[in-house]
Design a protein around this nucleic acid. Structure first.
Lengths: 186, 186
DNA sequence: ATCAAGGTGTTGCATAAACGACAAATGGAA
DNA sequence: TTCCATTTGTCGTTTATGCAACACCTTGAT
């Protein structure tokens, strides 16, 4: 389990499963995709699916978070601080990601996607906060990350619904003062 | 071994190896391609290579004959007789195959390719002859297949070297009477 | 001529993947 | 509702692949 994440067999099989799922997502709604569909498309045994994923919801979780992470990986979190510029970068990455997603997938799992994106944001924000505030109390950093993740995700929802005439980087700028004040008063 | 030819793992791995070999053939000469190159490109373990192939020459054999067979599969040998039309089809398939091969691979293994193509031809001719002449002595069919295979392959060499101004189907027509007489007097 | 570096086949063991079977759950259609 | 077909998780066994190590060859540089 610990070592097996680099086993070429595991990497191949997981990629086959995920690619097949993404492929099928372009053809059917999530609720109509079965595990059997995926394993048939991927040409792997159905039992092997359950070796890697608990069920189809677990797969959805991991596919979405990995695809989102690839989008976010363009931003170098290791170096960048949690400041105005990085918040804008993250916001743009989210809107780009959702644009790519909606062109590729049918509707039907908005709530799940929302949850996963927000959870990823929380992880990222918490990591960045902890780097900048090593002295602070951990619980305080956590709750700040939670609020930031909800706030930034909510802003992306608002942008998609009512503000698409603005470029996302312009839209989020108006929220930056509020977000930054929360970060500074952590 | 007997059953395993349908095992998805075997099919996947063999395809990975063969595709990697074809990919590398476009970049280097055969003599410069190592087993290690192939397995690295294919992201499989080197020991796994030897589970499927004796060595790199065995791989070359199987890649070439499978690719050639795909070309020849367009011709339905099960139904067609060994007549003027099918000989022309086979000849055109060979010249097409060699054209595709030389555009994709570097030089350096002409003799090997020649041997493999001729052996495949022999197998095909023998199979067709046996279908048409079930009563005849087997040894006689075999030697006829050998001579046909050498003759048709030699014609393709001659065409490539000195007769490319002619369409291959035109070129081979001038040899049809001779070849057909050998088939009829089997 | 010697040495170092890299490729070749081969082996024993660890583990992922295939396969077939199963009971249980789900979901339409009569 | 009942029935029937399909999907779902899970299991035990078999097989293919990964991995590390090995002795043996090349080959090129010093």
């Amino acid at each position: 389990m610990t070592q097996s994440k680099r086993d070429p067999r595991v990497l191949r099989t997981r990629k086959l499963i995920m690619d097949s799922f993404i492929e099928l997502s372009g053809k059917k709604e999530f609720k109509d995709i079965t595990v059997k569909d995926i394993t048939t498309e991927a040409k792997i045994n159905r039992a092997t699916f359950y070796y890697h994923f608990e069920d189809i919801y677990d797969l959805l979780d991991k596919v979405l978070s990995e695809v989102l992470l690839i989008n976010l990986n363009a931003i170098d979190f290791e170096k960048s601080e949690l400041n105005e510029a990085s918040i804008i970068d993250i916001f743009v990455a989210i809107t780009d990601f959702q644009r790519a997603l909606s062109s590729r997938c049918h509707r039907g799992y908005d709530e799940t996607i929302a949850r996963i994106i927000r959870e990823q944001l929380e992880i990222i924000f918490y990591g960045m906060l902890r780097k900048q505030h090593t002295t602070k109390e951990d619980e305080s950093l956590k709750i700040t990350a939670v609020i930031l993740s909800w706030g930034v995700y909510g802003a992306s929802v608002e942008w998609r619904r009512n503000r698409k005439e603005l470029p996302p980087e312009e839209f989020i700028k108006s929220a930056i003062p509020f977000l930054m004040s929360g970060i500074e008063h952590v």
